[in-house]
Design a protein around this nucleic acid. Structure first.
Length: 447
RNA sequence: GUGGCUAUAGCUCAGGUGGUAGAGCACCUCGUUGUGGUCGAGGGGGUCGCGGGUUCAAGUCCCGUUAGCCACCCCA
């Protein structure tokens, strides 16, 4: 055992940074609740069998057991790696009690055993909103959750967020119409478009047995992107000029439905937060279970960070189906990490205190404490100097923490209070003196 | 899980070809003896990640190991 060193991937913020994180969480919570989402918290663990449905995800699961557990102990537990799986279990477990459609938000830590790097942690906060229905879920909810999330993200101290949206139903109908049989295989390849380029995707599609004409059509669809409903015409044109497979008519209805849903989504989100939504027909989302709208959001100018929020509609997440839902998930820690690293926003001070009451001499500490209590009684966060050092030292103590006011107790009267930023010092009464409203609490301001 | 790079003071980093550890910033003290920040002078701080090897001698060369960073994979 040598030195104590940080563990990569397990971020621990300083008090000042933590104020920024708390601000982000508070804003998300405020907007979610403003739209009627109630909060739940699920346990940190689930049986491994439930978590590892997807073999890819299984590799990332941290398992949990007692140090002295029997080697053959079964019913192994694992830390959850997202909030969707625990939520599905929660709903299934309480299907008799919860009211549908059930709308909830959840802000908790999740754990993934992956190689960390900037924006990728092994322990981090996610903030999810979902709406789950019983047997059916109206399509307008796919618009609503996106609107709520767009508004929540717009409330954060970050540049504008762009939400790229697509519709699985639309894509699937189109792919089948042009003769692609392995739709999810094709989607997985299209998902890599940004990374491997059209040629790379074409190569993968060919390997999957997709014909060249179908491959061309798939890539042409993926190239469509518009911040308004212009994509509708583009898709229809493409459909009409593509070589369609026999029996394409049966996909025509689903295609039209998908287009209508995507249209409603783009217009709905943009009506709430102008310029936020972009129809982007290449957005695929790796996850298999999405069946309708899919979302993927990026911060303008910080695309290198990757997606900071994503989600979609699913029809059978909860065992056996019957609980269709739609939801979005924000990578809170990824966002906060970038806000801090790039200085997008900072806390105005590192401690809650608005006032430091100086101590004249240890024998007079009681007088300082009394002044502090009178300020606290009126909601002004106050601390008393830890020592009776020279006033210069006590001022320095406040300055280093960003505490804006130092109170000097006086003989008989309460003394004087100094704004150490301006140097202005006035005689004051602890029963009535008020700092400017913006100085009462630490604030988060743009960097 | 795969690959590349890195590891020296609290922080950022110097330390050709091996010869007993340096700078800037930060910190402490004093100038200024109870009102900070500027300025000046002085001062305290380092198992050179860890283990082994080569050598008269290793921060420096070799091997191993651990950790960090970056990319891949995947994803928030």
């Amino acid at each position: 055992m040598s030195r104590v060193l940080p563990l990569s991937g397990f971020p621990e913020w300083s008090p000042q940074e933590r104020i920024v994180e708390a601000h982000v969480v508070r804003e998300l919570r405020r907007v979610f609740e403003l739209h009627g989402f109630g909060e739940i918290e699920t346990r940190a663990v689930e049986p491994v069998a439930r978590l590892s449905g997807d073999s890819e995800a299984a590799k990332e699961i941290y398992t949990l057991g007692r140090l002295n557990a029997e080697a053959d102990a079964d019913a192994k537990l694992g830390l959850h790696f997202d909030l969707t799986v625990p939520f599905a279990r929660y709903v299934e477990e309480r299907q008799g009690q919860v009211q549908f459609p059930f709308r909830r938000y959840q802000i908790q830590k999740v754990w993934r055993g992956e190689r960390p790097q900037e924006g990728r942690y092994r322990e981090f906060y996610q903030a999810d909103i979902d709406v789950v229905g019983r047997d059916q879920l109206p399509a307008h909810l796919e618009v609503e959750v996106a609107v709520v999330m767009a508004r929540a993200l717009a409330a954060l101290p970050i540049p504008a967020v762009t939400m790229h949206v697509n519709n699985r139903k639309l894509v699937e109908a189109f792919y089948r119409g042009v003769g692609v049989s392995d739709v999810s295989g094709a989607l997985r390849s299209v998902d890599k478009l940004a990374k491997i380029g059209p040629e790379g995707v074409a190569k993968e599609l060919a390997a999957q047995g997709v014909s060249e004409t179908a491959s061309d059509a798939v890539l042409a669809l993926a190239a469509i992107k518009s911040s308004d409903v212009g994509f509708v015409e583009a898709i229809n044109d493409l459909w009409e000029t593509s070589t369609l497979s026999p029996g394409f008519e049966e996909h025509q209805v689903a295609l039209a439905e998908g287009i209508a849903a995507l249209t409603a989504l783009v217009s709905g989100v943009n009506a709430a937060v102008p310029g936020c939504a972009v129809a982007d027909l290449r957005i695929a989302r790796g996850l298999e279970y999405y069946t309708g709208s899919v979302y993927e959001a990026f911060v303008e100018g910080h695309e290198d960070l990757g997606s900071i929020c994503s989600g979609g509609r699913y029809d059978s997440l909860v065992g056996g189906g019957g609980f269709p839902g739609v939801g979005l998930s924000v990578g809170v820690s990824r966002l906060v990490g970038r806000i801090i690293a790039a200085g997008l926003a900072t806390a105005t001070r590192s401690v809650p205190s608005a006032v430091l009451v100086a101590v004249v001499e240890e024998e007079a500490r009681g007088a300082s404490a009394a002044i502090a209590d009178r300020l606290r009684a009126r909601g002004i966060p106050t601390e008393v100097s830890p020592n009776a050092a020279k006033f210069g030292k006590q001022i320095q103590y406040a300055d280093r923490r960003g505490i804006p006011f130092v109170w000097f107790p006086g003989d008989g009267a309460d003394g004087e209070v100094k704004d150490i930023r301006s140097g202005e010092q006035v005689v004051a009464d602890a029963g009535s003196w008020e700092p400017p409203a913006e100085d009462i609490r630490a604030r988060v301001v743009p960097g």
